[in-house]
């Protein structure tokens, strides 16, 4: 039976103007990724300073320098529509690589923050 689940993967940004990369392994029951969403515990830092590259199974979905603000959704957006829609089928043993870059633009003061990548997945029960 197909189930829809939301996964969350975190990276910590401890230093200003640095890049952080992390690879996450999806559960093998995940068959399809339907959407992604980027958020943070300090929204303003993510909005003004962040950009990222997202690869799923070595395929680039969002290239380097893709601004985080373009993948964020504010609280004005209905919870059902917050994910940026992408579609991957037959994901198999999926691997997501998130490469996040922090860059100061003068409007925020840096403090360590967390970047969370939410993934909207379709899973199938194992037999």
């Amino acid at each position: 039976m197909l189930k829809i689940v939301k996964k969350r993967y975190d990276i910590q940004i401890a230093e200003a103007n640095k890049s952080v990369s992390k690879t996450f392994e999806l559960d093998k029951t995940v068959k399809r990724i339907k959407g992604v969403l980027v958020t943070s515990d300090k929204d303003d830092l993510l909005y003004y300073r962040g950009s990222q590259k997202i690869e799923i199974n070595n395929q680039e979905y969002f290239p380097e320098n893709y601004e985080s603000k373009l993948l964020m959704s504010g609280i004005n957006v209905s919870p059902n529509e917050r994910y940026y829609k992408i579609d991957t089928t037959n994901i198999g043993n999926g691997i997501i690589k998130l490469s996040y870059t922090d860059a100061d633009d003068g409007r925020t003061t840096f403090a360590a923050y967390r970047v969370s990548l939410y993934v909207d997945c379709e899973t199938e029960d194992e037999l």
Partner: peptide, 10 residues
């Protein structure tokens, strides 16, 4: 409310 809390989807 600021853009980073209330922006609509882009």
């Amino acid at each position: 409310p600021e853009v980073f809390t209330h922006q609509m989807q882009t």
